[in-house]
Amino acid sequence: MRIILHIWRQRNASDKGKMSRYEVPDVNHEMSFLQMLDVLNEDLIVRNEEPVAFDHDCREGICGMCGCMVNGMAHGPLPGTTLCQLHMRHFKDGDELYLEPWRAKAFPVVKDLVVDRGALDRIIAAGGYISVATGSAPDGNAVLVPKENAERSMDAAACIGCGACVAMCPNAAAALFTGAKIAHLGLLPQGQPEREQRAIAMVAQARQELFGSCTNIGECEAVCPKEIKLEVIARMNADFIRASLTGR
């Protein structure tokens, strides 16, 4: 089948950038979306045009490196799926697709579809951890974790940090990302001692990174490739509000 692509091309951070039109004439249904881009790039190289830069690494949906907007949807039309796991069988001959990088003040474009997501690392660095020194841990079974909590914690911990939630959010908020880490650690007994400081520090960092505010619209939840729920944002709100009211 034939696919028409409109791709954002931007040489570097200071370049203005524009949409360019390309055609991939011979797309196989079994190809993944990124393999289709590989084919386009090989073709561009033959034509002496610089290939499209796009982030990708594991290509099995777990590293969180890939992702762009496909026709205005983060990671494309299939729910619960990263771009690398999206396959061309979900498109049809002649489809016209608009590929744009994640757009947010906090995610400056590096080149074409590649953006800098260092802001997410800095949110984790602000408090997305448990302060345990190597070697000081008690036996693994010394801390019991109710199965349900372990499962819910895992649901939140599944976040791959791809940034689709930010990209899709009309406010460019990083609430789902931040809430997922706060919920992951806050649902475990190990995470309790620092729970309040964590909420305050991570929320403050997200603000400093110029992410927007959550207005409970739910776009993030709809496109999250790991299907993390809005509930984690409520947990973050609860932790933050409680910490603000009761903190000494």
């Binding site: 409109h6 406010n171 939840e221």
Partner: peptide, 20 residues
């Protein structure tokens, strides 16, 4: 204002996934 500052460049094409 925060919302506008957080996304200075708009998408050329944007769909709604879940928004009411």
């Amino acid at each position: 204002k925060l919302k506008n500052d957080a996304r200075p460049v708009a998408y050329v094409k944007k769909e709604d996934a879940a928004a009411t």
